[in-house]
């Protein structure tokens, strides 16, 4: 706005300003061009009034001047907070997790910013947290390309280091259903046992450790190995 009309008075009344990436340069440019930034405190919020001549007045306490300032505004643009509203229902439908602010949570795995907590379901942009349009577009591209590479693949390598329930030993106690951090096991009544989808299992082994009846096995990190490997290795010490 300042570029278009340098004579225009632009005020930004704010709480906190964060400048990620190279946005600090933008802030500097704004200041250099004469945009005025006024920070307000929560216990002394700016007040917007309609004045008698029909224009809008903003009264805000400037912390530097330690005085109230009256701004007669031709235009007020409100930057309201972005709050998630109906994410819970959608999260339930897709079986993905929300974070503590109720936005869709990104995968807990390192370096996977466009993956949700469920494999094959991707998230981008404001769904994950409020961000500007540039980031949203990059994310959308990233999510799309991830989805395409999944769909294009001739075959997917899966399984191997995954947990498997032995239906004969399963007491159907629901412990694995309750304790899997990713909510993958479920009780398959046609089997009369819990079932862990090998395509979804992340291979952490937490269910293996929790199963009271030792009905879940993970050949990649078996109980035999965990008991015998230390025994054998300890014998090697002179």
């Amino acid at each position: 706005m300042k570029k278009q009309n340098p004579d225009m008075d632009v005020y930004i009344i704010n709480r906190d300003i964060r400048t990620p990436g190279f946005k600090e340069l933008l802030y500097r440019e704004a200041r250099e061009k004469g945009v005025i930034f006024i920070r307000y405190e929560l216990d002394r919020k700016p007040v917007v009034k309609e004045s008698d001549d029909g224009t809008v007045e903003v009264i805000v306490f400037d912390p530097v001047l330690q005085k109230d300032i009256l701004i007669k505004a031709d235009l007020i643009s409100l930057q309201t907070a972005i709050e998630p509203v109906s994410n819970k229902e959608m999260a339930e439908v897709f079986g993905v997790e929300l974070d503590e602010d109720n936005f869709f949570a990104a995968s807990p795995e390192k370096l996977m910013p466009v993956d949700s907590t469920k494999e094959g379901i991707f998230i981008a942009g404001v769904a994950n947290y409020p961000r500007d349009i540039k980031e949203c577009i990059s994310q959308a591209r990233a999510a799309a390309s991830k989805a395409i590479s999944l769909l294009r693949a001739e075959y997917l390598l899966k399984g191997g280091a995954v947990a498997e329930v032995d239906p004969g030993k399963c007491a159907v106690c629901c412990t694995c259903v309750r304790t899997c951090p990713f909510g993958i096991p479920y009780i398959d009544h046609s089997r009369g046992a819990a079932y862990i989808d090998p395509l979804l299992c992340k291979g952490c082994g937490i269910c293996v450790s929790e199963c009271p009846g030792k009905a879940i096995k993970m050949s990649y990190c078996s109980d035999e190995m965990l008991v015998q490997a230390p025994a054998v290795l300890l014998k090697q010490i002179a």
Binding site: I206, C221, P230
Partner: peptide, 10 residues
């Protein structure tokens, strides 16, 4: 002697 596990929760 080091023993590797996928997650300490195992």
């Amino acid at each position: 002697k080091l023993i590797n596990v996928p997650c300490t929760g195992r």
